[in-house]
């Protein structure tokens, strides 16, 4: 009964449902874009630079991969609330706030996975590139380029995390109908209201997206293996 109505909602292109899906994708994609701008250079730096306290930073970044979304949400909420340090921006309960919270959630994942990838490759390339007299700039460029397929899968892992989390966007977005309601917050709300068809429909769309991302990541990895060996 509920499943059938959910199916109708999804297949009939229900505008409310698709607005929610669109917002979710836009917020998570923007968050991943920002997180990668910070996370990839940071990961590459951690992989290549040697400085005191490096191990501690690596452990910290790795630990941050498991940040609870509600804690990130709460922290961003405190920063952006009217009396908080960034309260004057007035962006609490907007999609911008949601992007910030998700970017914080995803950046450590991208940084940690990038570090691992680049460090493994560097240990393999080090002698060769040193013997070729390759300078630091070309070194980083060569590593990033040769790791490109692995890095794409890193981005997809970050996107999967962002799209599936509910705690952070719920707290800083406020789950406002038609404005900050995402798939995950809508599912939480509709389930508690007892409107199961919409919740199930959104759940199915979310699952499809997550499966699609993973299939894509798998494809990228396979293609990369064939293409780069």
């Amino acid at each position: 009964m509920d499943g059938a109505s959910a199916w109708t909602l999804v297949t009939s292109g229900d505008p409310a449902l698709y607005a929610i899906v669109r917002l979710s994708l836009v917020v998570s994609l923007a968050a991943v874009a920002i997180a990668s701008l910070v996370g990839m250079p940071l990961g590459a730096l951690l992989a290549l630079a040697r400085f005191p306290g490096r191990s501690a930073v690596i452990v910290f970044v790795n630990a941050c991969m498991g940040l609870p979304p509600v804690v990130v949400g709460l922290s961003v909420f405190l920063l952006l609330s009217r009396s908080g340090p960034l309260g004057s921006l007035g962006i609490l309960f907007t999609p911008q706030a949601m992007v910030i919270a998700q970017a914080i959630l995803v950046a450590p994942i991208i940084a940690a996975l990038t570090r691992q990838t680049i460090e493994d490759m560097w240990s393999e390339y080090r002698d060769e590139l040193t013997a070729m007299g390759v300078g630091p700039g070309r070194r980083v460029a060569a590593l990033l380029w040769d790791a490109r397929f692995a890095l794409v899968t890193t981005l997809l892992a970050g996107f999967g995390r962002a799209a599936a989390e509910v705690g952070a966007v719920m707290i800083v977005g406020g789950n406002i109908d038609g404005f900050t309601r995402t798939m995950t917050t809508a599912i939480a709300l509709e389930t508690s209201k007892g409107d199961l068809p919409l919740a199930i429909g959104l759940g199915a769309v979310l699952m499809t997206i997550v499966l699609g991302i993973n299939a894509f990541a798998w494809g990228v990895r396979r293609f990369g293996e064939r293409y780069t060996g």
Binding site: D127, E128, A131, A142, D146
Partner: peptide
């Protein structure tokens, strides 16, 4: 120039 015992092949 040097060719190592196990040369690293760039992923290219």
């Amino acid at each position: 120039g040097i060719v190592f015992q196990r040369p690293a092949m760039l992923r290219r």
